[in-house]
Every structure is written in C-alpha cells, then in structure tokens.
C-alpha cells in the first residue's frame, strides 16, 4: 500500500448473498488515485460503479481485499472514525442530489460544518464561499423544491466542497441534467479541482462527462476492463 495515494484499492471484491449462493458485484479491483486526479468509473448499468464509490466513501466495506483512503483502512474504522472521515475528507454528490428538503440552500451546504462544531461566523463565510464557487449566492434562502435541476446539483456540489474535502465522489451527477447544465457543473468541478487540488472520482455513462475526465476506468461485470489516461479537453464544445 502506497501512502502517497489518496485512495488505494487492493484486490477489492464485493459479494452479496443471494439465495443459497452469492452475487459478485466487484472483483479483483486494484486501483490507486493520487491527489488532484480527475477520473471516472465508466461502465454499463450494474457493472459495480456505485458499489465501488460507496466502498471508497466508507459507506460500505469490501468483502475481500483492502480499501485505504488517506492511509486509513476502511474496514477497520469504527463507526465514529468513518463518520468523521466522511464528514471532513469526503464529499458525496449523488445522481438525485439528495438535498435535505426542509432546509434552505444555505442550511444544506452548512450541514457538514455544523457537525464539525465550527463557529457561526466561520460557517457563514465557508458556505457563502462555496455558494459563490457554484454561482448560487442569490439562492441561499431558497428551499430545494424551488430550484431547477441544475441549481439543485450545484447546491450538492457546494455542499460537498464547503468543507474542502480531499476527495469528492460523484455518482452519475449529470444523469438528471440537460447538456448545458452538465457542462456547467463539470466546468465548475474542474475549476475547483484545479484550484483546491481536490481529488474527483465520478461514476458515469454520460459521454459529456467523459470529455472532462483525465482518467477513465472501465468497469465490466465488477471487473476493471480498462484503465486509461486520456487527454481531457479543458474547454469542450
């Protein structure tokens, strides 16, 4: 295990018990990600993309092998330690945004900081900075139900970024967005990746997203089919 890597996966497998036997969702996964990488898991539905992201995000644990995130073995963390890791170091972005419906945009973004017991002034500054990155300061007091899809996903990005995490895991972030919004949020994330050196890992089967990726890992039936470094367009058309 090389501790220079932000994420290190060794022989990771995930099995689910099904009836008498088991279903293998992931197998022989060996991957390393360095800080600042902008990469994506690509593959057909059911190929194991979400499962792998969840293991890296310590929401799930591997059935075999070891997954290390920031030098910590996911499988051996206590509930509290893994919660802490998610709270400080990992930002999640989901396909359906998963914004908390009763909270305002500001409160949604603020949430992770509340858990960190940061002072109100500190929180306010960090939240407004994050909203500025995604260009939504004017919607701070709105409820998620009043937002468009693109705006909702931008809030989710702000929420993931507000704590300046080491890693952002984005599971099909563009699935519910049109082309214009997809390019918009990808450009925003790319900028943040450059500026803050945050490591981004996507899962996608969206060509528009792939244009931005610097590294594409093809998953097929839970195995790595191909791991390629690509020349990303910085300003795709």
């Amino acid at each position: 295990m090389n501790s220079d890597y932000v994420i290190s996966l060794r022989n990771v497998a995930k099995h689910y018990p099904i009836g008498d036997g088991r279903f293998t969702a992931l197998q022989d996964i060996n991957l390393d990600f360095s800080q600042g990488e902008f990469s994506g898991l690509v593959g057909p539905s059911g190929s194991g993309k979400t499962t792998l992201l969840n293991i890296i995000g310590s929401l799930d644990s591997p059935s075999e092998g070891t997954a290390s995130v920031l030098g910590k073995n996911i499988a051996t963390l206590s509930h509290k330690e893994s919660a802490q890791l998610r709270n400080r170091e990992i930002g999640f972005i989901f396909q359906v945004y998963n914004l908390l419906p009763v909270y305002t945009v500001f409160e949604n973004v603020e949430f992770a900081l509340l858990l960190q017991n940061r002072s109100e002034a500190e929180r306010k500054k960090a939240v407004m900075d994050a909203l500025e990155w995604v260009g939504l300061t004017h919607l701070a007091d709105k409820k998620p139900s009043k937002l468009s899809g693109g705006e909702g996903q931008r809030v989710a990005i702000a929420r993931a970024m507000v704590k300046r995490p080491s890693i952002v895991l984005a599971d099909e972030p563009s699935a519910n967005l049109d082309a214009r919004n997809t390019h918009g949020i990808l450009q925003t994330m790319k900028d943040l990746n450059r500026e803050l050196k945050t490591t981004f890992l996507f899962s996608t089967h969206d060509e528009k997203v792939m244009q931005y990726l610097e590294r594409i890992i093809h998953l097929d039936d839970g195995r790595i089919a191909q791991d390629e470094i690509v020349h990303a367009q910085s300003t795709p058309t």
Partner: peptide, 16 residues
C-alpha cells in the same frame, strides 16, 4: 431513509 442516508454520508454516525 434517503434523508437518513444523506445524514450519514455527510458525516453523522447512525447513533447520532
């Protein structure tokens, strides 16, 4: 449950 999952993804423990 989605909300619960979101809380946990944002760094709450299940006990919290």
């Amino acid at each position: 449950q989605k909300e619960i999952g979101t809380y946990i993804s944002l760094g709450m423990t299940r006990q919290q």
